[in-house]
Design a binder for these strands. Structure first.
Length: 257
DNA sequence: AGAACCGCCTGCTTGC
DNA sequence: TGCAAGCAGGCGGTTC
């Protein structure tokens, strides 16, 4: 599922491939997206990431905000047939961008540029002190908190597990019980894990593919997520899996305190 | 108010 | 083999 590294990968590729190009046609294939305006005739001036959202900045002070949710993908095709599960499509001067999404959770919106709140992005403008002041006394479990997009943007289930594993923090700890040092460890781990995942162009555990349909390589870097029953690379303990709020959490009960 | 839970969706895996 | 149930989970909305 696309989290920060996957969306960052897409945005960088889109910036190279579609920025400066004119939209010749746009087309909706799914009635759930019927509200989406036709952006024919607009030019994409730039592409940037907002948390897990792709923002295509148009030349008319509006942006297309694409959120891929679980199974959404953006695919660049020079020619050929519409891929299966296509839900929306843009035709550009040298090719096409398809929004492909089997489970139909993805959203596409046209809003004035700058309307979507920025901030709290661990890779850009994250304010540790503000985070601790604002959330450090909450009673939520730390894993749920770092996946809360209002607190920090970009972290989903896979990277939350990896970050806490690297930081040596038990996912069921309550936020209020963490020390400042432990928070700093989490933020530092988050930067390392996410930077690496961007370098590896994302985690292709199930259906993640980049703009050109290629798999990422970060699945080979995972040390906790999906590794139940395997040995922990830090301490030799055994990775276990629990449920937190309906989601699977993977961690090492020996070295995550 | 803050935390937990539900529903949206469909393809794939598991079990009988 | 075939069918049904279970599972995956981000996020907005609802409930506790």
């Amino acid at each position: 599922m696309p989290e920060l590294p996957e969306v960052e990968t897409l945005c960088r590729q889109l910036q190279k491939t579609v920025a400066g190009k004119k939209v010749l046609a746009s087309e909706i294939f799914d009635s759930k997206l019927a509200h989406m305006e036709n952006i024919r005739g607009r030019t994409i001036s730039a592409v940037r990431r907002r948390g897990k959202t792709v923002e295509l900045i148009l030349s008319n002070r509006h942006s297309v905000f694409i959120h891929l949710r679980m199974t959404g993908r953006l695919l660049w095709l020079k020619e050929g047939d519409k891929p299966k599960h296509s839900r929306w499509h843009m035709s550009l001067t040298e090719g096409n961008v398809y929004l492909v999404d089997p489970r139909r959770f993805a959203t596409v919106k046209l809003l004035p540029t700058g309307d979507s709140a920025a901030g709290n992005d661990i890779m850009h403008d994250f304010d540790q002190h503000a985070f601790i002041a604002g959330h450090g006394r909450r009673k939520v479990k730390v894993k749920n908190l770092i996946m809360d997009q209002k607190a920090i943007t970009g972290i989903g289930n896979i990277y939350a597990c990896e970050i806490l594993h690297r930081a040596g923090i038990h996912p069921e700890r309550v936020a209020a019980a963490l020390t400042k040092k432990e928070w700093e460890k989490i933020f530092k781990s988050a930067k390392i894990i996410l930077t690496k995942a961007i370098e590896k162009r994302g985690t292709s555990i199930s259906d993640w593919r980049d703009l050109y349909g290629c798999q990422g390589e970060n699945q080979f870097e995972l040390r906790a997520y999906g590794r139940v029953g395997e040995q922990c690379g830090n301490c030799g303990g055994t990775i276990v899996r629990i449920k937190q709020g309906g989601r699977s959490t993977f961690y090492c009960p020996v070295c995550q305190k």
